[in-house]
Structure formats: structure tokens, C-alpha cells
């Protein structure tokens, strides 16, 4: 029987590690009780953002989608409303990041990107929740406080991302395609 060897590139390792980190955070955040459904610090998003800034768009998309998929499998919420909300949030957040990226990387820093991602995330989740699950106008009463939370956590995550990247800068910038994991 011929043995097929799967060759992995460094990029795949990177995605796997980052996704593992994001999944761990995702599961932890799910375990933390929240006063308002949907209110989370969004640290898992932070991983996506760092992946984008450090390694580029492709890595970020993989990390984000893997997090949602595997995270839901671990939590047993695959294909449940929770999963769909998670996916909607991730996709909207990626869309916002893509838009932010398109504006130009010299003009928009991690803080702005983080904010865009956070606001996109909650908006996407809300639209889906309203369209599919709770088409009741009362749902929108929850939107302003969640948007506020997204604003605060978006800024905090942006600051963390800045600090983290400055740290990486000091150690040495990983270059896309050449960086290797040890």
C-alpha cells in the first residue's frame, strides 16, 4: 500500500498554532459566564488580527475559520445557532478587516483594524440573530450596549495588538514565507 506523505509548509504550522491558540481562547471565553448574551472580550479575534498583521490575509482567514469550526466541535455546538452566530461574527469581522486592509496599511494601524473587526463582528452577529432567530424589534435594544462593549474591547485589543507587535519587532520581524517555527 503506497504511503502518502503529507508535506506541510511552515505556513501550515503557523496557521495550526495560531488556530490552536484562538480555539483555546474561544473555548475559555465560552466558559466565562457573561451578563449579556454575546458580550465577550473578543480575545479570539485578537489572534486573527495578529495573524493578519504578522502573516497576512490568508493566515488570518484560516485561523479565524478554523477557530469557529473546531471551537464549535469542541463545545458541541456545531451547526447550532451558537455556531452560526459565531460564524457570522467571524465572517463579518473578516470582511471589516479586509475593508480596513484595503484602505492601506500605512494609513490604518492595529487599533483601527481591531475596532473595525470588533464592530463588524457584533453587527454581523446581530443581523443574523435578527434575520434568523429572533426577528423581534425588541432585540435591537441590546444592540447599543453590545456596540459599546465592542468599542471598548476593540480599543483594548488594538492596544494589546500594538504592544505585542512592538515586542515582535524588537525580537525580529518574521517574514512571510521564510519564518519557521521552532
Amino acid at each position: 500500500m503506497p504511503v502518502e506523505t503529507v508535506t506541510t509548509r511552515p505556513e501550515d504550522h503557523r496557521i495550526a498554532w495560531l488556530a490552536a491558540l484562538a480555539i483555546a481562547i474561544h473555548v475559555l471565553e465560552a466558559a466565562i459566564p457573561s451578563p449579556v448574551p454575546g458580550l465577550k472580550p473578543g480575545l479570539a479575534n485578537l489572534v486573527t488580527l495578529l495573524a493578519l498583521l504578522a502573516f497576512g490575509w490568508r493566515t488570518a482567514v484560516w485561523v479565524s475559520l478554523l477557530r469557529v469550526l473546531v471551537g464549535s466541535l469542541i463545545l458541541g455546538s456545531f451547526l447550532t445557532p451558537t455556531f452560526m452566530l459565531s460564524l457570522a461574527g467571524a465572517l463579518a469581522s473578516l470582511l471589516a478587516l479586509g475593508l480596513g486592509r484595503a484602505l492601506g496599511r500605512h494609513w490604518l494601524g492595529p487599533l483601527g483594524l481591531s475596532l473595525l473587526a470588533a464592530l463588524g463582528h457584533i453587527s454581523g452577529q446581530f443581523l443574523l440573530a435578527y434575520a434568523l432567530f429572533i426577528p423581534h424589534p425588541g432585540l435591537w435594544h441590546l444592540f447599543p450596549p453590545l456596540l459599546t462593549a465592542a468599542l471598548i474591547f476593540g480599543i483594548l485589543n488594538g492596544i494589546i495588538a500594538n504592544l505585542a507587535l512592538q515586542g515582535v519587532d524588537r525580537i525580529g520581524t518574521p517574514r512571510e514565507g521564510t519564518a519557521s517555527r521552532t
Partner: peptide, 13 residues
């Protein structure tokens, strides 16, 4: 690298 606060960050905020 992409660090530091940029003009666009203020606009987005």
C-alpha cells in the same frame, strides 16, 4: 511593521 497609531485609527475611533 504595522505598529503605532495612525491617522486612520483616529478616524475609525
Amino acid at each position: 511593521m504595522n505598529t503605532g497609531i495612525r491617522a486612520g485609527d483616529f478616524l475609525v475611533a
